[in-house]
Design a protein around this nucleic acid. Sequence first.
DNA 1: AGTTGTTTCAAACGTTTGTTTTAAAAATAG
DNA 2: CTATTTTTAAAACAAACGTTTGAAACAACT
Lengths: 201, 201
Amino acid sequence: MEKDTRTKLIDTATPLFADNGLAVVSVRELAQAAGANVAAVSYHFGGKEGLYHAVLEYQFEPIAAALERIKTMSTLPPVERLSHYASLVAGVHHQRPYLLRFVHSELTSPTAAFEAVIKKYIPRIFHFLHQSLAEGVAAGDFRPGLDLGFATISLAGILNFYFIVRPMASQLLPINEFSDERYVNQAFAIYLDGIRRKDNE
Amino acid sequence: MEKDTRTKLIDTATPLFADNGLAVVSVRELAQAAGANVAAVSYHFGGKEGLYHAVLEYQFEPIAAALERIKTMSTLPPVERLSHYASLVAGVHHQRPYLLRFVHSELTSPTAAFEAVIKKYIPRIFHFLHQSLAEGVAAGDFRPGLDLGFATISLAGILNFYFIVRPMASQLLPINEFSDERYVNQAFAIYLDGIRRKDNE
DNA sequence: AGTTGTTTCAAACGTTTGTTTTAAAAATAG
DNA sequence: CTATTTTTAAAACAAACGTTTGAAACAACT
């Protein structure tokens, strides 16, 4: 078995890195949690940063796949493209519960992996949203006065913020039941209604 | 002068802690950046965590003030209360540009300061929003089917996410000009239009 | 001027960090 | 069976960590 300890290390490191950050988690703590030897990290990944990089690449796999699907959407009407994006967000976070922790951690305090991983995917997503919004305005679906850059951030924010705070939310908020799909549906509905062109425009 | 190095340390530590986190910033790096001695941190704050705690308390000052103002709003109609909250968000982030970094850092990977500081303020804000939304629904202003817990997160998300990613946004997004007030105004308008009761409801 | 309390400083303390090095053991493949 | 790769264990490494120490410098006040 070639990849037994390799994958075991990645699986164990994922929640530890996501919760505590690259710097806080020590190699010894990591190895013990994975049931592996201290030297295994250097042996397989060339060091702690190498393991972190491997974790991040695995986390971004579904985003790469989602971006491929996004390419095929250019013929769809803007509203449907945004709707697809919303369900894509829910699906990706369901597949990779820790992904957004890494994205946000890299956005706020970038490590060496920022250039290699984050800068590769995030701008493409924003570009897709930005362009879909622009076409929606041009088609008369959305409010003509929209600031597109801000509206892009608003959509990303209203959809993703929930997944950022969710791990702590049960301690802080009086929420009965957490359903990612229900959240995304309502949030997207609010957003879409909010940017729609009104009759008096 | 008693508080010269004290405040100098707090001021210097604020962006360092905000950008890199409590664990990553070393006391020596901190002291050198502040032009102080290594021992000054232990002397004035009892240690690195004490300094972090002092930084956090200073950051939360405007939130405490905002919560006081919120108390006086109970007589206002729900829409205006939410609108006040939106401009309060903009004002607080203007006063304390690093505040949200700390809030989010504590939400995702809590330090010892979480219980003492975060748990003290955040639930009150969410309670205020939750209640305002509930009254708005009861008054017929907002859609009757709204999930209030989710709608609370949506509002917090659409307003705050911008301030989380803004430091990195210029590298990632094609945004011409950053204006916090303009962003908050448009984002809140989108949200408010999105939760408004429609004619057919 | 002299006393007292506070603040600053360089140096040192004991720990922990990531990584490397040995060697032996285990597993895999040809 | 042999050769290669992987895993384990224990030890060692320099570097960096947070904190403490004791003396020196400073300030405030009688």
